[in-house]
Amino acid sequence: MTEQTVDWETFFRERQRQEKEDKLARFRHLNPYVRKGQVVFAGSSLMEQFPIYEFLLDFQLPYTIYNRGVGGFTTDEFYAALEDCVFALEPAHLFLNIGTNDLNGPEYRLSRLLDNYEKILQAIRGRLPATRLNLMAYYPVNPAVATIPHMQEIFRHRTNARIREASEGVRALAARYGARFLDCNAGLTDADGNLKAEYTIEGMHMYANGYKPVLDALLPVLQEIGAQ
């Protein structure tokens, strides 16, 4: 009897696809209960893992914020999921952090990332013209703390130089579409411009102590929103 060979790459890719679908299904069941006209955080895992609900409780912040980030999302996937992640909530204010997963492989092209991002903005402007858009700069990474071979391969492509370049492209899109560009990275970097080692899980994603400086940078914007 021969042993069946498992195609682990296909297995994990399918598992990730299913996890994304499951999250969108949960959103579809949650969205009928949201208070429309509030604040929405949306994007990929760096937004999904923002512990905003707990921070609102911890610091008694008087805001209603819904998190519709989905780990692993590219700009293509986010565009396809706009109904569940944005449109159904009809937010008054939308904070976007989407696109870093586009950088992860050798096929990455800045022009494609920005074209996709612009398509997202056009769709939101067309469907929700009154929504205030807040486009976030991409967070830095720290390849020095990566020990997993898979992560080391990603960091060959997802470099801080490319991240800064992509963020500047998003800044230009913000200006073109009347959005606010938010660079919340000042408290995240070490002397070399890398994500501080004490903030990161594996060089890319962050613990709560990494998100706290981001929250601090966002508070003036949230306070402004709350005063409106």
Score class of each variant (00 low, 15 high):
residue 146 A to P: 04
residue 130 A to Y: 10
residue 171 R to C: 05
residue 134 N to A: 05
residue 114 L to F: 07
residue 129 P to Y: 06
residue 133 L to W: 10
residue 124 I to V: 15
residue 135 L to N: 01
residue 148 I to W: 08
residue 104 N to L: 02
residue 137 A to W: 03
residue 130 A to T: 13
residue 151 M to D: 13
residue 120 I to Q: 04
residue 134 N to R: 15
residue 89 L to E: 08
residue 155 F to Q: 06
residue 156 R to Q: 14
residue 125 R to N: 07
residue 105 G to C: 08
residue 119 K to L: 09
residue 165 E to M: 13
residue 141 V to E: 00
residue 132 R to Q: 15
residue 168 E to V: 00
residue 96 L to D: 03
residue 143 P to L: 07
residue 106 P to E: 15
residue 134 N to Y: 15
residue 162 R to A: 14
residue 114 L to W: 08
residue 100 T to R: 05
residue 161 A to M: 01
residue 161 A to R: 14
residue 91 P to N: 12
residue 111 S to C: 03
residue 110 L to D: 09
residue 130 A to R: 15
residue 98 I to W: 06
residue 125 R to M: 08
residue 162 R to M: 04
residue 121 L to E: 15
residue 154 I to K: 12
residue 100 T to M: 13
residue 120 I to M: 08
residue 124 I to K: 09
residue 105 G to V: 01
residue 117 Y to K: 13
residue 129 P to A: 05
residue 163 I to Y: 06
residue 156 R to L: 11
residue 114 L to A: 07
residue 102 D to Y: 08
residue 98 I to Q: 04
residue 152 Q to F: 08
residue 125 R to A: 11
residue 162 R to P: 00
residue 89 L to H: 09
residue 128 L to T: 05
residue 140 P to Y: 01
residue 171 R to W: 03
residue 125 R to K: 15
residue 150 H to T: 15
residue 152 Q to S: 01
residue 112 R to E: 07
residue 163 I to W: 05
residue 172 A to P: 04
residue 169 G to R: 05
residue 151 M to G: 00
residue 132 R to G: 11
residue 165 E to S: 11
residue 158 R to C: 11
residue 107 E to Y: 11
residue 138 Y to A: 00
residue 164 R to M: 07
residue 121 L to H: 14
residue 166 A to D: 02
residue 126 G to F: 10
residue 106 P to K: 14
residue 103 L to W: 00
residue 114 L to T: 03
residue 138 Y to L: 14
residue 164 R to I: 13
residue 111 S to Q: 10
residue 156 R to N: 03
residue 93 H to F: 12
residue 103 L to I: 00
residue 171 R to T: 00
residue 169 G to P: 03
residue 94 L to Y: 14
residue 93 H to N: 14
